[in-house]
Measured scan of single mutants.
Amino acid sequence: KELVLVLYDYQEKSPREVTVKKGDILTLLNSTNKDWWKVEVDDSQGFIPAAYLKKL
């Protein structure tokens, strides 16, 4: 599985998104959309702007 590093805090703005903190390491589930990547946070899944993430 691929991991990503969160570069900036992000507060979810819709139920399909997730809240993350700078420095979090998350599992990347889908990066086919260049603007929004799907990640797994704890036991939930959701989208975060790709610009907030860096592949490890």
Rank of each mutant, 00 (worst) to 15 (best):
Lys1Gln: 11
Lys1Thr: 10
Lys1Gly: 09
Lys1Met: 11
Glu2Lys: 10
Leu3Phe: 14
Leu3Tyr: 14
Leu3Asn: 04
Val4Ala: 07
Val4His: 01
Leu5Tyr: 09
Leu5Asn: 01
Val6Gln: 00
Val6Ser: 01
Tyr8Ala: 13
Tyr8Thr: 07
Tyr8Pro: 00
Tyr8Met: 13
Asp9Trp: 04
Asp9Phe: 04
Asp9Leu: 02
Asp9Gln: 03
Asp9Lys: 02
Tyr10Ser: 01
Tyr10Thr: 01
Tyr10Glu: 01
Tyr10Gln: 00
Gln11Asn: 14
Gln11Ser: 11
Gln11His: 13
Gln11Thr: 14
Gln11Lys: 13
Glu12Ala: 15
Glu12Trp: 15
Lys13Leu: 09
Ser14Val: 06
Pro15Asp: 12
Pro15Thr: 10
Arg16Asp: 12
Arg16Asn: 14
Arg16Phe: 14
Arg16Tyr: 13
Arg16Gln: 12
Glu17Leu: 07
Glu17Lys: 09
Glu17Met: 08
Glu17Asn: 10
Glu17Trp: 07
Val18Gln: 04
Val18Arg: 05
Thr19Arg: 08
Thr19Ala: 07
Thr19Trp: 06
Val20Ser: 02
Val20Asn: 01
Val20Arg: 01
Lys21Pro: 01
Lys21Ala: 08
Lys21Arg: 13
Lys21Cys: 11
Lys22Tyr: 05
Gly23His: 04
Gly23Ile: 02
Gly23Glu: 02
Asp24Lys: 06
Asp24Ser: 11
Asp24Gly: 05
Ile25Cys: 05
Leu26Ala: 08
Leu26Ile: 12
Thr27Phe: 11
Thr27Cys: 11
Thr27Leu: 13
Leu28Ile: 04
Leu28Lys: 00
Leu28Gly: 00
Leu29Ala: 03
Leu29Asp: 00
Leu29Glu: 01
Asn30Phe: 05
Asn30Cys: 13
Ser31Gln: 08
Ser31Ile: 05
Thr32Lys: 10
Thr32Asn: 12
Asn33Trp: 06
Asn33Lys: 06
Asn33Asp: 14
Lys34Glu: 10
Asp35Arg: 13
Trp36Phe: 08
Trp36Pro: 00
Trp36Thr: 03
Trp36Tyr: 10
Trp37Ala: 02
Trp37Tyr: 04
Trp37Met: 02
Lys38Asn: 06
Lys38Tyr: 15
Lys38Leu: 15
Lys38Arg: 10
Lys38Ser: 09
Val39Ala: 01
Val39Ser: 00
Glu40Asp: 06
Glu40Ala: 13
Glu40Lys: 12
Val41Thr: 15
Asp42Cys: 13
Asp42Arg: 14
Asp43His: 12
Asp43Lys: 12
Asp43Asn: 14
Ser44Met: 15
Ser44Asn: 13
Ser44Ala: 14
Ser44Lys: 15
Gln45Thr: 13
Gly46Ser: 08
Gly46His: 15
Gly46Thr: 13
Phe47Val: 06
Phe47Cys: 14
Phe47Ile: 06
Phe47Arg: 03
Phe47Asn: 04
Ile48Asn: 01
Pro49Val: 04
Pro49Trp: 05
Pro49Asn: 04
Pro49Arg: 05
Pro49Gln: 04
Ala50Glu: 04
Ala50Leu: 03
Ala50Cys: 08
Ala51Glu: 11
Ala51Asn: 12
Ala51Thr: 13
Ala51Asp: 10
Tyr52Ile: 15
Tyr52Val: 12
Leu53His: 02
Leu53Ile: 06
Lys54Leu: 13
Lys54Val: 13
Lys54Ile: 13
Lys54Trp: 10
Lys55Gln: 07
Lys55Ser: 06
Leu56Lys: 03
Leu56Met: 09
